[in-house]
C-alpha cells in the first residue's frame, strides 16, 4: 500500500517538475521580465541594474530556478509586490474560506445530484428521466456567474433572506452565520456540479444496468432493490468516487468565478486581485498552492479507489 502511494507520487514528479518550470518561467515571459514588473515601464538604466543585482538576476538561469524551487519547497514563496507581505501568509488567510465553500458546495452537489441520477437511470427514457436529464443539462448549462446573479436577485434583492455580498465566517465560530454567508455561493457552485455528477452517475448506472452480471443477479431471484442497491451501485460508485474527488479538487481553484460573483474572500478572489495588480509573486504563489492541493486530492482519490476496487493490485 505504501509502495503504491510512493509509486504514484513518483509518477507525478515529472508533472510537478514541468509545472514548476512553467510557473517560475512566467515571470520571465512577462513583458519587461521580473525587473519591469517591479519598476514599471519608465525605469532608468541604473534602477534596472540595481534591481537586477538585488534579485540575483545576473546569476545563471539554472541557479535562479533552483533558488526559487528550493524556496517554494521550503514554504518561501516570496513577498507580494503590492502589499509586501509574505505570499504564503496572504494565501493562508484565504484558504479556510475556500475550503469551507468547497465542502459546502460538495454537500449540495451530492444531495442534488445522486437522487436525480438514480431515479433517471431506473426509468430510462421515461417522462421523469426526461425532466431530470433536462434539469441536469440546465444545471450544467447555466453559467455559475449568471446563476449567482439570479440567486442574488431572488434571495437577496427580492426576498431579502440572505446577504448578497458574502463574508467569511468560520463554521466553528458561528455556525448559523457561517451557513448564511456560505449558502448562496455553495448553492451556485453545488447546482452546477450536481449537473455534472448526475449526468455522469446516470450514464454509469445505465451502462451497469445492461451488464451481464445484473441478469445473473436477477436469475438468482434477488429482489430488485438488492440488484440495484448492492450489485449495480457498487460498480457504478467506483468511478463516481473519482469524479467527486476531481470536483472537490476543482473547487479549490475553480471557484474563482463564484467567489467573484459573491465577493467571497477565498483564494480565487486573491488571485484575481493579484492579476489586476500585476502582483506576479502572489499569482505564482496562488498557482503553486492550488496545484499542490489539486494534485494531493487527485492522489488521495487514486489511492482510495485502489483500496476500494478489488481488481486493482498495489503491487
Amino acid at each position: 500500500m505504501i509502495g503504491y502511494v510512493l509509486r504514484r507520487i513518483a509518477q507525478l514528479l515529472p508533472v510537478l517538475l514541468i509545472a514548476s518550470l512553467g510557473i517560475w518561467g512566467m515571470l520571465y515571459a512577462v513583458p519587461g521580465g521580473p525587473v519591469g514588473m517591479l519598476l514599471g515601464e519608465n525605469a532608468t538604466a541604473e534602477q534596472i541594474a540595481a534591481v537586477t543585482r538585488d534579485l540575483g538576476l545576473d546569476r545563471p538561469v539554472l541557479v535562479q530556478y533552483f533558488d526559487w524551487l528550493v524556496g517554494a519547497l521550503t514554504g518561501d514563496l516570496g513577498n507580494s509586490v503590492y502589499s509586501q507581505e509574505p505570499v504564503l501568509k496572504l494565501i493562508g488567510e484565504r484558504l479556510p474560506a475556500t475550503l469551507q465553500l468547497a465542502v459546502a458546495a460538495t454537500i449540495v452537489a451530492l444531495v442534488l445530484g445522486i437522487p436525480v441520477a438514480i431515479i433517471s437511470a431506473l426509468y430510462p427514457n421515461s417522462w421523469i428521466d426526461r425532466i431530470l436529464s433536462g434539469w441536469s443539462a440546465l444545471a450544467l448549462g447555466v453559467p455559475t456567474f449568471w446563476l449567482g446573479i439570479l440567486l442574488i436577485l431572488l434571495f437577496a434583492v427580492q426576498l431579502r433572506w440572505l446577504p448578497s455580498a458574502s463574508t467569511y465566517v468560520a463554521f466553528w465560530d458561528n455556525p448559523v452565520q457561517a451557513l448564511r454567508s456560505v449558502a448562496l455561493p455553495a448553492l451556485t457552485l453545488g447546482i452546477y456540479v450536481s449537473g455534472i455528477l448526475a449526468r455522469f452517475l446516470r450514464a454509469s448506472l445505465v451502462s451497469e444496468l445492461r451488464a451481464d452480471y445484473v441478469r445473473t443477479a436477477r436469475s438468482k431471484g434477488l429482489p430488485e432493490r438488492q440488484v440495484v442497491g448492492t450489485h449495480i451501485m457498487r460498480n457504478a460508485l467506483l468511478p463516481f468516487i473519482t469524479i467527486v474527488g476531481l470536483m472537490m479538487a476543482n473547487f479549490i481553484g475553480g471557484a474563482v468565478v463564484t467567489e467573484a460573483v459573491f465577493n467571497y474572500p477565498g483564494i480565487g478572489r486573491l488571485m484575481i486581485g493579484a492579476i489586476s495588480n500585476r502582483d506576479y509573486p502572489l499569482i505564482q504563489g496562488c498557482i503553486v498552492v492550488i496545484l499542490v492541493i489539486y494534485i494531493a486530492i487527485n492522489l488521495a482519490v487514486d489511492v482510495l479507489y485502489a483500496y476500494i476496487d478489488p481488481r486493482i493490485e498495489y503491487s
Binding site: A211, D212, Y213, R215, T216, A217, R218, S219, K220, G221, L222, Q226, T230, H231, R234, N235, L238, D309, P310, R311
Partner: peptide, 30 residues
C-alpha cells in the same frame, strides 16, 4: 421462482459474475 425452480448458466463467465463482490457471497446470496 428464479433460483428456486430454475437456475441459469450464461455464456461468458468473464462477465456473468459481479467483479466487485466476493465469489462466495454471490453464490449464496440468492
Amino acid at each position: 421462482m428464479r433460483g428456486q425452480e430454475v437456475g441459469f448458466i450464461f455464456q461468458d463467465p468473464a462477465t456473468t459474475l459481479n467483479p466487485v463482490l466476493p465469489v462466495g457471497r454471490q453464490i449464496t446470496e440468492g
